[in-house]
């Protein structure tokens, strides 16, 4: 009986556990940045690209930028914005909620959060 196959799988599982511990230790570095960005998106019902001027206007209204945006290179501004306010952003263009090319190409993003109507 091929028990060696089971031992091989057990070794692979232990190796994956080692990788997971390493990823946790790296969470304040690049690995962690991706996790934080994914976490923001997981909280987001929808994602929009907006113009720099409208993003700045949101900032001047007191809507803070999420810290993870500054960790990216080049930096992005990413803000959670009430949906009623998003509806008044003329430059808004909705993009898929995923870590895809449209999101990564954008410099200014606004997100609508689950559980926040307006």
């Amino acid at each position: 009986m091929n028990v060696e196959a089971l031992h091989r799988r057990a070794r692979q599982a232990r190796a994956r556990a080692q990788v997971r511990r390493w990823q946790y230790r790296q969470r304040h570095h690049a690995q962690g940045t991706w996790h934080l960005l994914a976490r923001l998106l997981a909280d987001s019902r929808a994602v929009f690209v907006v113009s720099e001027s409208e993003s700045e206007a949101l900032g001047s209204e007191g809507i803070a930028a999420e810290a993870v945006g500054a960790m990216l290179e080049p930096p992005r501004t990413i803000r959670f914005v009430p949906e009623a306010r998003i509806a008044r952003l003329e430059s808004r263009r909705e993009i898929p909620v995923r870590l895809g090319p449209e999101l990564l190409a954008a410099r200014h993003l606004v997100l609508s959060r689950f559980g926040e109507g307006t």
């Binding site: 511990r21 969470r27 996790h35 994914a38 976490r39 998106l41 997981a42 909620v97 995923r98 870590l99």
Partner: peptide, 18 residues
Amino acid sequence: PHLRHAVRANLSALSLME
């Protein structure tokens, strides 16, 4: 802590799954 982190990371990945 690293396992709680893994749970949350997997939930984030689930949320973004195509």
